[in-house]
Nucleic acid binder design. Sequence first.
DNA 1: GTCTATAATCAGATAGAC
DNA 2: GTCTATCTGATTATAGAC
Lengths: 222, 222
Amino acid sequence: MSTITEPVKKSFKVQMLEAREMAITASVNRLLSEKGFDAMTVDEVASEVGIAKASLYKHFSSKEELACAAMVQAMQKAQDFLLNLNKASEPSTAGEPSHHATTCAALNKLMATTRWTLQLKMAGQMPTLPSQNSSLRATLMASRPYMDGLMQVSDLLGAWIVQAQKEGFINSALPPIAVLYTIYARACDPVLEFLKMSELHTDEEIIDIVMTTCFAGISARS
Amino acid sequence: MSTITEPVKKSFKVQMLEAREMAITASVNRLLSEKGFDAMTVDEVASEVGIAKASLYKHFSSKEELACAAMVQAMQKAQDFLLNLNKASEPSTAGEPSHHATTCAALNKLMATTRWTLQLKMAGQMPTLPSQNSSLRATLMASRPYMDGLMQVSDLLGAWIVQAQKEGFINSALPPIAVLYTIYARACDPVLEFLKMSELHTDEEIIDIVMTTCFAGISARS
DNA sequence: GTCTATAATCAGATAGAC
DNA sequence: GTCTATCTGATTATAGAC
């Protein structure tokens, strides 16, 4: 009741609420990765989180909003990763001009990002958005947090792509947007699952294989 | 009633039945390509074909069987294409030994197959099988015609892959099965749709782009 | 805010007349 | 074999007690 204890109590409540919502998005993320949006049911989410289905709808107003929250969180993680990459590579630029470097910082960052994406998917933490589902797409496109995150990620990657092309490490005959989409598509590459099912290679080997096909293609280098 | 007219009448009936089933699988193929298995409803199929839903179930016992029939037909088309490719390239082998050839027949066939696949998908005629859906997968795996077709196609492509690797045109560091899956994956490559939506390139340009990323990767050649 | 119970809807599948 | 009408089950979403 006092004006002093009120904020503390409220903060605790908010913490609990946020913790619960984190638990929810984590479950959604896992289920989205495992079965996709359509096959995932709200009942499953509720039972996995350990609360009643009706309680879920107190937090999120629809199944689409539920998935959207998980996607926003995943996008946030991607942003953090990219910004960290950028920060980590900045000190080296103070040393030498990267004019005739044998390694390309931009290409390295693109490769690191792609590998990170593949590892996430391999670990079952990459929510697979069904490119064909309309209701989820509509919700995502209407979500400011999601679209803002997507733009930022695209801008960062796009800049690296253009830079890598300028330095001759990415095929300049390819439109940058095509390169961007090709990297994005690794997040839902079925080759990972197929190779995993064949049980002929370790997870790391599979990632190396897909990294190779993505950047070097399947043809032999001349 | 006569033993002479009976077979003729029956044959006509069979023709009608087969024609109807062809119309059904064609519609299923289109819808499967447009929206995928989950989003496609049996009601849609029925109304597009122009018959009642119950009539559909006289031909196919379930939605899965419906999709399976379309997939079998598509697989058959793929087989025909591959066998034709093989036949067309055989005469040249009689001429010179392809030992130090500058072009590789096997690689050419792999590229032709990939391009054909992309063109089919671009035309909305490639049924997209959801890698995550379990009920359809189970039906497909239990279908002899489908699995037989898949095996034959895989054997043909696999032989070309090994041959192209032997001749130094496909990266020998990649397991042949990985190359096979990478080519298969072009049938559901979301990059095609993304680029199509961006409306910056013609269909042919998009196919060329994806062909390039598939065989040469996104990196510049050294 | 969480629960149990229930509404509302939709889609796959079937019954039965013709 | 085709139709209309219906069943069945699953799933999203909500009402109302606590």
